[in-house]
């Protein structure tokens, strides 16, 4: 039981990160029908910028700057996707984001090198030691509480933004009916850029949060991006709620799989993709979406 609880804690905190990345996928997909495979690089940018800055300044400065840097990269990518958006097929744009992700990773490696950079725990005892709590027999690190707390905050903030603000409503309107949106005077292009900026902002927050306590590396984005992608597809692309639930479920299943098949521990990362393949075969619209996957 204790082992179960311990794995559950790990699963939930990992799953939260997948959930945030999945929201990013959904925001961009809803507005453009493009699956942005550079989403993972937003996570990496956030982590790397924070890591680089943390050598000189405190987290309170490094965190916001890292988010801004992520947003900037998102805005640039958004502009790049926007230019051919009307003329090109969605598939070409998706390939473009794959290319962008390789480019961003390559540039980051040129700039920061291959080595991992240390990011201290947000509220640890020291750089390499976190505060811990004992909850139901499991050891919970303060960083894991940060992860869950930040995820909850982000989910609430995103929900309120889309539900209650004019800009959020306008973004939903663009996803639901671009022609109608244009006719009420919404600048659809601006909203698309904004969706990239938001997705990048969310990704970089996830990046800083996940990197704390472990190393930030230029190559960390790919795996996290793909896990987030799995979560987004499992939840039904374009469905924020679905992506969040699927992300957390994915993290939990991934962690608990060793209880069922102990030899799986080395292949933990494969779990997400096995589930993804199964779901795509059996219920391609996503486990949590009622309708066909529409924005």
């Amino acid at each position: 039981m204790e082992q179960f609880n311990q794995l559950l804690v790990t699963g939930i905190s990992n799953g939260c990160i997948y959930a945030i990345v999945a929201i990013g996928f959904s925001i961009i997909y809803a507005g453009t029908q493009v699956i942005n495979f550079a989403q993972g690089e937003f996570v990496m940018i956030g982590a790397m910028v924070a890591a680089a800055l943390l050598a000189k300044v405190s987290l309170l400065v490094a965190f916001p700057v890292a988010i801004l840097a992520g947003c900037l990269v998102g805005a640039i990518l958004g502009l790049c996707v926007l230019v051919p958006l009307k003329r090109a097929a969605v598939v070409s744009l998706v390939i473009m984001t794959v290319g962008a992700s390789i480019l961003i990773r390559g540039l980051a490696q040129l700039f920061w090198g291959e080595e991992g950079k240390n990011v201290p725990y947000f509220t640890g005892v020291s750089v390499n030691e976190d505060h811990t709590f004992h909850i139901a027999g499991a050891i919970v690190g303060a960083q894991q509480i940060w992860v869950v707390g930040i995820t909850i905050l982000l989910v609430i903030a995103t929900h309120c933004f889309f539900k209650y603000t004019l800009t959020g409503r306008a973004m939903r309107a663009c996803a639901l009916n671009p022609t109608g949106a244009r006719l009420v005077g919404i600048n659809v292009h601006k909203m698309i850029i904004l969706s990239f900026v938001m997705a990048a902002g969310l990704g970089s927050i996830a990046g800083v949060t996940v990197a704390a306590g472990i190393y930030a590396r230029c190559t960390m984005g790919a795996a996290l991006g793909l896990k987030g992608f799995c979560a987004a597809v499992l939840g039904g692309l374009g469905s924020y709620g679905g992506g969040i639930v699927a992300g957390i479920l994915l993290g939990v299943v991934e962690a608990l799989i060793v209880l069922v098949i102990p030899s799986m521990s080395d292949y933990r990362d494969a779990v997400a993709f096995v589930i993804l393949l199964l779901v795509l075969l059996l219920k391609p619209e996503g486990i949590l979406s009622r309708k066909k996957a529409v924005a």
Binding site: L166, R169, A170, R172, A173, L176, N177, T179, G180, A181, L183, V184, G185, I186
Partner: peptide
Amino acid sequence: VDMGLVQVPEGRQLFAGMSVYENLMLGAYR
């Protein structure tokens, strides 16, 4: 739209997943 020229399009082009109220509010977007 800012100048006061507004189109009611063919096929209505409403925001189908949003409430009637939200649709009306978006009409005042500009």
